[in-house]
Design a protein around this nucleic acid. Sequence first.
DNA 1: GGTAGCATGATTATCCCA
DNA 2: TGGGATAATCATGCTACC
Length: 413
Amino acid sequence: MWYTPMHVLVDSIYASQADHEVLDENRFSSCVGRKKARFTEDSKKRKRYGGGAHGSQSPWDGGHEESISLPKPMVGFGLPGDRPRSVSRLLPAHSMRAPFFYYENVALATKGAWAEISRCLYGIEPEFVDSKYFCAALRKRGYIHNLPTEGRSVLRPIPPKTIFEAFPQYETWWPSWDQRRQFNCLQTCMASAKLTERIHRALANSSDPPTQAVQKYVLEECRKWNLVWIGKNKVAALDSLEMEFLLGYPRDHTRGASKKKKDKCLGNSFQVDTVAFHLSVLKDRFPCGMNVLSLFSGIGGAEVALHKLGIRMKTVVSVEICDASRNILRTWWDQTQEGTLIEFRDVQSLTHEKIASLIRQLGGFDLVIGGSPCNNLAGSNRHHRVGLEGDQSVLFRDYVRILNSVKSIMANV
DNA sequence: GGTAGCATGATTATCCCA
DNA sequence: TGGGATAATCATGCTACC
């Protein structure tokens, strides 16, 4: 454990900041002409993050064997409503060059995965946040970004944070022995009809209240599949509209896709309120709008968050390989946006030359945002949870490659 | 070929108690 | 402090059906 939560990092941790700078929250601006900020040159000599007892270990030496301990509670650099405190992130100088960037993946990844991701993203410590503080469902995710952390604001209206606040109709049949007040992580698969029928039969054949053994079985399945009580002894999976609501998307955002595709797309998506809280610091910095490079866009969680924040998107270059997700984003974009949406299918088609061409065309990107595939990192994957170098998750290296290309090209514009 | 239904543990972290 | 118990987890592959 060589990391300590970044929110406790203070200026006094390091006497020397030869290769780090305290984030200057006024550094980025696109509206009044992109200024070339003064950045210190990278130093080959790395310094360490962490403080106190953790300060003697480094994320850079033998990163594959290292692991980042998850904060408890998983509140990132601060939650809405927290009392103001001095948060001064020490970021490597080269990470602070424009554009802003924001990377996301599952918090509970395989050992060493976040250490490697952090190492590739300038050694910045991930901000681990559980979306249970923003909505009625858990969603433990890690975010690496170079955004300021002061002056964040929440989306209004504030979403309900308990099951009964979100769906009061289910309280009628909710048994007292089911103590759940929030859902677990919304995933890509839903419970089968056979399972809910088995639960119904087990309850119907048991006493009232059910035996301890039946309660244990039912509760385990309810927690695993996020089941709700729709009648006496009857449970059901959440439907797509409910998942959209919990995740912060507009009603029927995924219309047009099949049920299976909806579940998969939503299970893979951002929790909008959480991401919007982090991105909210951009609103005042880009009053004239932003150019966004959205990698692994999915159903447009980042775009929806920016839209809900009232941040105008002049252009979004979106890269998403799933046809259904691209259709969902395109439909939403056409209905709500006046800017330009440029779509690509494969991140690997976004070469250095292509990126340079886009930057010449658009004048640069203000934000590079995306969450690369978690398939080989996620605990739910029983078949190929092989770590960062798995077929899907290795694409995080394309995020790094593209971000580095954008930074280097924009530094020379 | 596309879709839906279904069955399929392991890894990781945390809690609790001796 | 160590080990067992408990809990959570952006999923994949096979089969049937249209």
